[in-house]
Design a protein around this nucleic acid. Structure first.
Lengths: 334, 334
DNA sequence: ATGAAAGCGCTAACAG
DNA sequence: CTGTTAGCGCTTTCAT
């Protein structure tokens, strides 16, 4: 160690100029084929590893893409990140991941960091409390393109990739109605993202279109986890006029609902139907297996990446919005 | 954009030398307190962001830690990575994540990459087919310390953090025996890591210590997922002399087992007890809730990080092994 | 097709 | 306490 091989070492060994080595190794500029082969052979032989730090510094831009998520653990995010990394790698990019922990302050720090690293681009899903987009403006100022996926700041103009959440909820409610349900409740989170408002709107519209009353008692917002689903289900079932179908905005919440219903001896889906969102594999572990609204993650990744790459290549900031079709995965709860 | 602020800009504005600015901003060297304050104020005012690319390049080392995992999606890995990122961030490090996709070739490419980025250190869990450690030797040559967690190459000398897998399996089997089970089977994966061999050894020893016969029919190896668990459970239950307890080396496999048993009308845990490994939240979604051997991830993260940091600080490669106590989380399947 | 020169932004080492 | 000098490894530009 200590004596790292540089292009100069390769050049000296061959009695040529290090610039030629640089050109040969990058397959750029005019280098005699014969020389190029010679150089590559020697580089390999010496175990030369390009110093990315130097290269990125010189280019004033790294070839790293950043992904910012509130939390890496939920399946939706870990799957997105996992797929995104695959896609990025194939295109020659490395990926840095950042977790905001649902804290806007942290998100801001992360963005400062990203600017420091001169990342090539950013894909982000914002925290539950991110209302302002101002910290992302800093990226714009630095010419770093970014794309939001799933969770975007309110009224942002920036590029974003979302599922058609209105349709997802609308279809889910319609499916329950089709199976004979007439009293359908809605359990959401308190997170104030457009996606959740859209789902609520889809839920309401489906009820209206089927001439079913919308009761405020049947719309609950709060929490994000399994235990919240359990509590809300309990609250719902204690209602005098209790529901026979429940749409939850997350599979984890839906599973909480199922757990409560089963302990209370309700049959699913006979007594009550349940549908969630996300197609989390956890939904297969529970019984009956959870029917869910799938947001195609490969599709979201593909669109996000494409949108980002386009901006990187053209060195422009785009304002584009991709809407992905949701799809209901029918399993055993409706 | 285009006109990024550098320390020279800050210096010019103040009519001082940029080196003084550098010193002031890093709280290093001797700078008059008054000047330091002035500089920091001006830097903030101009929106100066240190160029990490330049800094890292100059220092010949980045302040990035790399985590290499086979796959980011399983809860065990996403949780580890998530926690590790938190810990690293608090210590001022950023984190790059890499997925080998269980492919050793990919793992090798990743390591070349890490060297290119001159990362400060590496934490890795190797692929199912990584037998040689040779590609990690390259890191050693570059003076980049690394620590294995959970899955290490065979017979490696390198620093590693593991759970006491022998004990985990031993205790799990003992727990089943304590609840009256006498015919305990073992479902493993075909992955050839020490951790799985240790679990098998723990399983066997527990049976021996309780004078229970070890039947090769009851030891199945193969697969890694839920469907594998289902298949293996089926195979096991079709045996003439079928088991009344099953230990699986992963919760996901255990859940597959449970799913099969329930479709075949076995009662759990009355007819058959089941225990898994990992404390995957998926185990809470299923019914009955899965009893599992927990590997404390915060503890693994803490040890991994500490082991790594120690090597970074001392610029030495250590050969240290940390063994963490597993713990059985009793739920409903035993 | 190859070489020479210059500089990216920063920091260590030395000088004053 | 502050300034000067030099250079990290690489690539772009211009010259040959």
């Amino acid at each position: 160690m200590g004596d790292t091989i540089t292009i100069k070492d390769v050049a000296r060994e061959l009695g040529i100029h290090h610039v030629t080595v640089s050109r040969a190794l990058r397959n750029t500029g005019a280098v005699k084929e014969e020389t190029r082969v010679l150089i590559k052979k020697k580089a390999l032989e010496l175990g030369y590893k390009p110093n990315r730090l130097a290269r990125d510094f010189r280019n004033k831009r790294s070839n790293v893409l950043a992904v910012v998520v509130p939390d890496l653990r939920p399946y939706f995010f870990s799957k997105f990140v996992s797929d995104f990394m695959e896609t990025a790698k194939e295109a020659g990019y490395s990926v840095m991941i950042f977790q905001s922990g649902e804290k806007p302050g942290m998100e801001k720090d992360i963005i400062d960091s990203l600017i420091g690293y001169r990342v090539a681009g950013v894909v982000a899903s914002v925290t539950k409390d991110t209302v302002q987009e101002s910290h992302f403006d800093l990226l714009k100022e630095e010419g770093i393109p970014y794309v939001f996926f799933d969770r975007a700041p309110e009224e942002t103009q920036a590029s974003q990739v979302l599922v058609d959440n209105f349709k997802g909820a609308y279809d889910a409610v319609t499916a329950m109605i089709a199976s004979g349900k007439k009293r359908i409740a809605y359990i959401s989170t308190h997170y104030r993202h457009q996606i959740f408002r859209d789902r609520l709107a889809g839920y309401k519209q489906a009820l209206r279109d089927h001439k079913i009353e919308i009761s405020p008692d049947w719309i609950i917002e709060g929490g994000f986890f399994m235990k919240d689903g359990m509590e809300h289900a309990k609250q719902l079932m204690q209602l005098e006029h209790c529901p026979d179908g429940i749409l939850a905005v997350r599979d984890e919440i839906a599973i909480g609902v199922i757990k409560y219903l089963k302990t209370s001896a309700y049959s699913i889906p006979e007594d009550i139907a349940v549908i969630g969102f996300d197609n989390d594999p956890m939904g297969i572990a529970c019984e009956p297996e959870l029917t869910t609204v799938q947001q195609s993650i490969p599709c979201m990744v593909g669109n996000s990446f494409e949108l980002l790459l386009q901006q990187i290549k053209q060195s422009t900031i785009l304002f584009d919005k991709k809407i992905i079709e949701p799809k209901i995965i029918y399993r055993g709860t409706v």
